Amino acid sequence: MGLILLGDGTGNFTSLSPTESGLGIKGDIKSILKLKIGNSDFLIFGINQQRPEVYQIRR
């Protein structure tokens, strides 16, 4: 499993573990697409040799 890196827009990043982010995806992630449907935001992960996984962003 990897980490999520949050950028501040100036080249600095803070890492979040899967426990902190609530996101744990197994596999080799090849792409990520952010999608907005109505008032909801989603992330679609393209994973090598697997079906895409979709997660709703909750703030």
Rank of each mutant, 00 (worst) to 15 (best):
M1T: 15
G2I: 06
L3C: 10
L5I: 03
G7F: 05
G7K: 01
G9A: 01
T10F: 15
T10K: 15
T10S: 15
G11T: 03
G11H: 00
G11K: 01
N12E: 08
N12F: 07
F13T: 04
F13R: 07
F13K: 07
L16F: 11
L16K: 11
P18F: 02
P18D: 02
T19D: 15
T19C: 10
E20M: 05
E20Q: 10
G22K: 02
G22D: 00
G22H: 02
I25E: 03
K26L: 11
G27Q: 03
D28Y: 11
D28K: 09
D28A: 09
I29M: 05
I29T: 02
K30S: 01
I32P: 01
I32H: 04
L33K: 13
L33N: 10
K34M: 14
L35H: 13
L35V: 15
K36T: 14
K36E: 12
I37Q: 14
G38N: 08
G38V: 04
G38W: 01
S40F: 11
S40V: 05
L43Q: 01
L43M: 06
L43T: 02
I44Y: 06
F45M: 04
Q49K: 10
Q50G: 04
R51F: 12
P52C: 07
P52E: 11
Y55R: 13
Y55T: 07
Y55E: 06
Q56Y: 04
I57A: 05
I57M: 09
R59C: 07
